[in-house]
Amino acid sequence: MSSATSSTQAGADRPGKKNLLFGLSNTLVYRLLSIVAVFGIWEIAGRIPISVAFPTFGETMQALFEMTLDGRMVHAYGETLKPLATGVIISGVFGVVIGVGMGLNRLFQWMWEPIFIVLQASPVAALIPLITYAYGIGLTAKTVAVIMLAAPIIVLNTYKAVRNASPSLIQMSRSFQGTRMQEIWKVIIPSAAPIIFAGLRLGVAAGFIGVILAELLITPTGLGDLISYHRSIAEYPQMYAAVFSIIVFSAVMVGFLENVEVKYFRPEKKKGL
């Protein structure tokens, strides 16, 4: 109780200038510092060097810049995004729908749970060559690889989030004569949203792993091709530039999902954070 009160007071003087550093918000400054520190260590490690195959941060950024300008990066992303976007969208949409269904209905749960638990427990990297027997070496095989990595995480997180939605809030909705549909849309889904979105973020990140694995293990295209080509001719800055760009892209996607969650489902998290 007292902590709730004090957080109210802290919230009240938040609009003031107390939490500002160099005119930027406190948290933003710390985040920037953390990023600068990582890049700094990278630069130093590259200069020592810890390995001939480990370029400095500067060299990598230069390679990234050149590859972006001459269109290689754009072309690679064009290739990689096809299976990635398809797979992530299919996993996100069907994953959430199936997970919500499993959370709401036992029969549905028994139908789907075994498949996704097996998928989550299996070493998908080892299964990827098997995918090629079933789906060939084209776009379909790569999309399937993305789905196999992303979907189980999304489905199982969504299912657990829905199943554990606050029973007290559900009872409240019933006591005020909410229908089952209102209960699902106005109580269960918003209540489950933080964990569903945590699953989506992890799922999207796993989808990135899936697409790169597929591009390295099935047929070299897009970013997988950039990585393996530059590695084979020992152009490490270029290779790391490709890896670096995926990490940044993946982080941006994950951050975007976080904004969607706060904006549309959990507005209370916007304040005081």
Binding site: S166, S168, L169, Q171, M172, R174, S175, F176, Q177, V187, P190, A193, F265, R266, P267, E268
Partner: peptide
């Protein structure tokens, strides 16, 4: 036979929607 408009409940744990 179920909840009705002539009764309203006040819950021990408040049961407020945290996102509202």
């Amino acid at each position: 036979t179920g909840p009705g408009p002539e009764r309203a409940f006040v819950f021990q744990d408040f049961a407020l929607l945290p996102w509202a």
